[in-house]
Nucleic acid binder design. Structure first.
Lengths: 355, 355
DNA sequence: TTGAAAGCGCTAACAA
DNA sequence: TTGTTAGCGCTTTCAA
């Protein structure tokens, strides 16, 4: 008898131990634990009781080896504490867990050798059943054929020749809406502080901004490029503040918008009286900075859940077609950082003043 | 011959396939892949070449089953996009990867049934070699004996009877420093907006605040409790703004500090002229809100790395003693949200004014 | 509805 | 320095 009281010390109990204690075969234990049919209630009860008594825990490595599936999903995400990627990760974890999958996470840092490809390789080696690539940056032609379904969040489908779902490319209409909001207020044009060029998310927003201006026949000012940080927004804001013609700014995320507002404030340009600013994301502090930030809300949680649902379906029904992803709803949150432009002022630079 | 060109279609190659192609035994392939000694350079080269040609990938489930180790670390973290937890996760991932470990992540949402215990159970089932519990909240007596080393970040050691390392409890001196900064400026006392009571992180900061006041013999005002969000800070700020005696506030994180400042601003109380506010964390936007926030910087990355180093050591040298963790350095970042109090004003409430 | 046998692809222990 | 032989603890046949 190898029965251990509780789970103190000794080797971990295996399913044979449970079987012996319950007086059934090892296969029957497996059936009970996997919720298979054709097990009498009586037997099921005995097995569960024995498992509880021994403190039995399934060995997922053995299961993975025998079944060829790990019931886990790998996530490639950026090693940043940015609100967007962090929120997506949370949504993905939650949805995966609800679907019965564990999560294995690999970060890629910008400039990492190997980048996304290396990260995916390492996940494949870990034997994941599916992969989520969250907000990747463009690393040029990626050739890597993967034999599990892949979900790409916030970028066009990559990884040629495989079952890939892409989603969250809906940022473009959101950016268009943000820009139109400023145009609708009466601004002649809108300046843009973009994210890093290699980010697809930055490109979508840039594209949305551009298309809104084009549709209205507005002039397209030169784009300032930041790195998502408030610091870079601040730098861009200094340049913007020096240009007396600027009356409206659309920043590609809220952090940069906050930096822009700070720079404008320091230069004596009031927001929104002199310059209107719109952000992107609706981070939790956006409503509480001064002035409260008009922004566009990204439904991170919905995007992550919807995407994961598709991924799980692709995993569990390998031959079914992958339905397209629904675009998330557009939600503009108007607060106090935007207003109509002041009456046409002389275009010469005014010194900072108290109005 | 089962040799597949490249890696298109067909079953994945196994180490025997590599062995056959390289003309060696399967065990030798295993040796090469594990970087063991006693392999001639010539053989090593041939094996590597064959592996590359076949597109061979190690099967980690098989390895885990045979070796009893997964080379992976499980992380239990909170399902929030809060800057602190997100930063810790990044640091942990990075350090784990550097040490050759993969990461398996389970989130617990506040109020989750099972909470940390359930999360740890699920990780144990996945077969991790070690566990990181990041910023747990107090769930009462936790009894769960775990047979792998555990690292607790930002809380006292839990999980009785096991090899546990705790770290990051150094928030208390940071909070004391923040409070002392305000006292040093000449404020008679400091009000505190705390985090949720069940968070150890909130308790540490509360304790630090309290001890600073006690040491100086300052009066201890009633504590306002928030939930880390700017919204809750805003609510607390409204109450604070209504009290004309308040001249200095220490908020337990930057988000709440921003909410407090917003409420004060709305009430016509100027920061820092009328009220000084200090935050905690130094989130990236802290330097760019208006006024730029005085705060205390948490070295998340250093804490995560140092902790993980200890955890890996505990995994790899089961009998060695666990050295204590070094407390992180205190770093106060003084910006523009703090100033000396105005000359002793009459203590009656003044209506909002422009000073 | 249950059980027996045969692997899954690797590492461990030992032998050569 | 290399190879042989047993498992690791499950799931998958297939048979009863």
């Amino acid at each position: 008898m190898t029965r251990e009281g509780g789970r103190a010390g000794g080797p971990a109990p295996r399913s044979v131990d449970v079987a012996r204690l319950a007086g059934v075969s090892q296969k029957t234990v497996s059936r009970v634990l996997n919720g298979e049919r054709y097990v009498s209630d009586e037997v099921r009860r005995r097995v569960l009781e024995a498992a509880g008594e021994l403190g039995y825990r399934l060995n997922s490595a053995a299961r993975a080896l025998a079944s060829g599936r790990t019931r886990s999903i790998g996530v490639v995400t950026l090693g940043t504490a940015l609100y967007g990627p962090a929120s997506l990760l949370i949504g993905v974890e939650r949805a995966a867990r609800d679907a019965g999958y564990a999560l294995r996470v690999v970060n890629t840092l910008e400039g990492d050798p190997g980048g996304v490809v290396g990260a995916v390789e390492s996940l494949l080696e870990q034997g994941v059943d599916g992969i989520v690539v969250s907000e990747p940056i463009d690393e040029g032609a990626v050739s890597l054929s993967v034999d599990v379904p892949v979900l790409v969040l916030g970028a066009p489908a990559a990884f040629g020749g495989t079952r890939t779902v892409a989603t969250g490319v809906g940022a473009e209409p959101l950016a268009r809406t943000a820009t139109e909001h400023l145009l609708d207020l009466g601004h002649r044009t809108v300046h843009h502080v973009a994210g890093p060029e290699r980010w697809f998310a930055a490109r979508d927003r840039l594209e949305g901004w551009r298309s809104a201006l084009t549709a209205r026949g507005a002039e397209q000012p030169a784009v300032l490029v930041g790195d998502w940080s408030a610091a870079s927004g601040h730098e861009a804001g200094r340049a913007l503040a020096a240009d007396g013609d600027v009356t409206a700014v659309f920043a590609a995320n809220d952090d940069m918008a906050i930096g822009v507002i700070r720079a404008l404030t320091e230069a004596g340009r009031r927001v929104p009286d002199d310059v209107s600013v719109v952000g992107f994301d609706d981070i939790p502090v956006a409503a509480y900075v001064t002035p409260p930030l008009t922004t566009v809300r990204q439904p991170f949680d919905a995007v992550a859940r919807e995407g994961l649902r598709l991924l799980v379906r692709a995993i569990e029904r390998p031959d079914a077609d992958l339905p397209p992803v629904n675009d998330p709803p557009v939600e503009l949150v108007v607060r106090a950082s935007t207003a109509p432009p002041r009456l046409r002022a002389p275009s010469r630079l005014r010194a900072p003043s108290r109005g």
